[in-house]
Computed example of a mutant assay.
Amino acid sequence: MAGVSGCLKYSMFIFNFLFWLCGTLILGIAIWIRVSKDGNEILSSGKSDINPFVAANILIAVGAIIMVMGFLGCCGAVKESRCMLLLFFIGLLVILLLQVAAGILGAISQTETKRILNETFYENVNLLSQTGNNGKEFRAAMTEFQNKFECCGLVSGASDWGSNFESVSQSCACEYSSNVCTTYKGKSVYKEVLGLVFSMVLYCQIGNK
């Protein structure tokens, strides 16, 4: 395919390679949540009657789709394959149409969605700050999750743990001086929270209510 811009081709390759990496990350985290004991505890911590594994399965599907799209974009650009590029284009178009449809539905039910989302989020935040046996397994699972994925808290960061922070501070410890670290009660902790991953799980649960 003479005349194809090398700059355009490799720019598309790099973009889609990053896209593929994001899909791999989502898929890896979703599978971990689906099969691990700690992940199952986090999913089933709420009081919803909906099967919590539905959300994890949806995340696995999303991660797999992103990986496939990234693969088609990478290979289509490097190999200059019209078939792969056409499939990539069709896939993006379908995703765009689904996003528009989801946006319309979300706008219609925005108030109710916000209410349910906030109630579910803060129900779990309360479990982090409680003491005794109530929410003990959830706090243990969250501590393990923070250790593995270098994050801290659910909504507001380390402060979500309340008086329990000192006992779990090691799982929040941020050892490197970078923009992902902040200081809380004299300790360097991750300022990142689980909002992105957790909100996707909750949103999926809300969609089934």
Rank of each mutant, 00 (worst) to 15 (best):
139 R>S: 03
201 V>P: 01
103 G>I: 07
49 D>N: 14
162 G>H: 08
131 T>R: 14
51 N>D: 14
154 L>W: 00
51 N>A: 12
101 A>T: 14
183 T>E: 09
70 G>S: 02
87 L>D: 06
121 F>W: 08
7 C>I: 07
209 K>L: 13
185 K>W: 04
57 N>A: 08
133 N>I: 07
148 K>T: 05
119 E>K: 09
64 A>I: 07
13 F>V: 07
205 Q>S: 09
32 W>H: 02
200 M>Y: 09
181 C>T: 02
123 E>T: 13
153 G>L: 02
14 I>F: 15
197 V>D: 08
102 A>Q: 14
140 A>K: 11
70 G>N: 00
181 C>F: 02
107 A>M: 14
71 F>K: 04
182 T>A: 10
187 K>D: 06
194 L>E: 14
81 S>I: 07
125 V>I: 04
38 D>V: 04
95 I>Q: 12
157 G>M: 00
90 I>C: 11
23 G>M: 04
86 L>W: 15
193 V>G: 01
82 R>H: 12
71 F>S: 05
15 F>Y: 13
46 G>K: 02
86 L>Q: 10
107 A>Q: 12
83 C>F: 14
72 L>S: 06
132 G>K: 01
75 C>P: 04
104 I>F: 09
165 F>P: 01
68 V>I: 13
159 S>E: 13
42 I>Y: 04
81 S>C: 08
44 S>W: 02
20 W>N: 09
120 T>M: 12
18 L>N: 09
85 L>Y: 06
145 F>Q: 00
196 L>K: 06
56 A>H: 00
205 Q>P: 03
75 C>K: 00
136 K>H: 11
194 L>N: 13
145 F>M: 03
202 L>P: 02
21 L>S: 12
28 G>F: 03
10 Y>T: 00
151 C>D: 02
9 K>A: 05
175 E>H: 15
6 G>P: 08
172 C>T: 03
161 W>T: 02
116 I>A: 08
162 G>M: 05
73 G>K: 01
69 M>W: 04
39 G>L: 01
169 S>Q: 10
2 A>H: 11
199 S>R: 08
10 Y>M: 09
201 V>S: 03
154 L>H: 00
166 E>P: 07
168 V>G: 05
170 Q>D: 15
138 F>W: 00
197 V>W: 10
132 G>M: 06
17 F>M: 10
64 A>N: 05
162 G>S: 05
5 S>E: 05
76 G>M: 02
205 Q>D: 12
204 C>Y: 10
57 N>F: 08
4 V>N: 09
92 L>G: 14
32 W>K: 04
179 N>W: 10
121 F>N: 03
118 N>T: 14
169 S>M: 09
170 Q>C: 07
29 I>F: 05
111 T>R: 13
65 I>A: 14
129 S>W: 09
135 G>R: 01
94 V>I: 15
70 G>H: 01
130 Q>N: 14
157 G>I: 00
64 A>E: 07
190 Y>R: 00
75 C>H: 02
18 L>F: 10
162 G>Q: 08
45 S>Q: 08
48 S>V: 02
173 A>S: 11
177 S>I: 12
104 I>Y: 10
168 V>T: 06
201 V>E: 01
135 G>D: 03
24 T>M: 15
108 I>H: 07
199 S>Y: 07
1 M>D: 11
4 V>M: 12
84 M>T: 07
